[in-house]
Amino acid sequence: MNVRCLCVVLICALSCATVHANDAQHIHASHGWIRVLPGDLPAGAYVTLQNDSDRVVSLTGASSPAYTEVMLHQSSTTGGMSRMTMVDALPIPAHGNAVLAPAGYHLMLMKAVHPIKPGDTVKLALKFGDGSTAVIDFVARPANTVDDDTNAGH
């Protein structure tokens, strides 16, 4: 009787764990980098996010011990005008990708706690829809970096 109870509890705990794997556990981040600008100017951070789950996961923001403020932004060019707007959530499709890349979605990093220089690795905690987070390494690269990796498909 007691053993059976324990089994039920264990099975339940196991199945609960698989059903409730959080958003962060389903997201695989790659190609994280930051375009470092001189002085204390805001910097753009970019990354490719891959969702291995059967449902849409949304990126809702990020934070970093290296920056006072991090915002999820989207740049757009319409009618010959470039503008930047705040985004509440970026959906990452089920079994698909969301790409944060120059001239599109980016994380805007503001007020560096200490100066960041090219070659540094910066940790960013990405926040997802269910409140879970994933800490990802971003490589700081020079201001004039042309990110051909996303185009050339290295």
């Binding site: 375009r35 805001p42 753009g44 060019t77 470039s82 001239a103 990093l109 004039n144």
Partner: peptide, 11 residues
């Protein structure tokens, strides 16, 4: 203070 499009164009 434009962290995305201006640096991309200049790069």
């Amino acid at each position: 203070h434009c962290p995305d499009v201006c640096p991309l164009t200049l790069a």
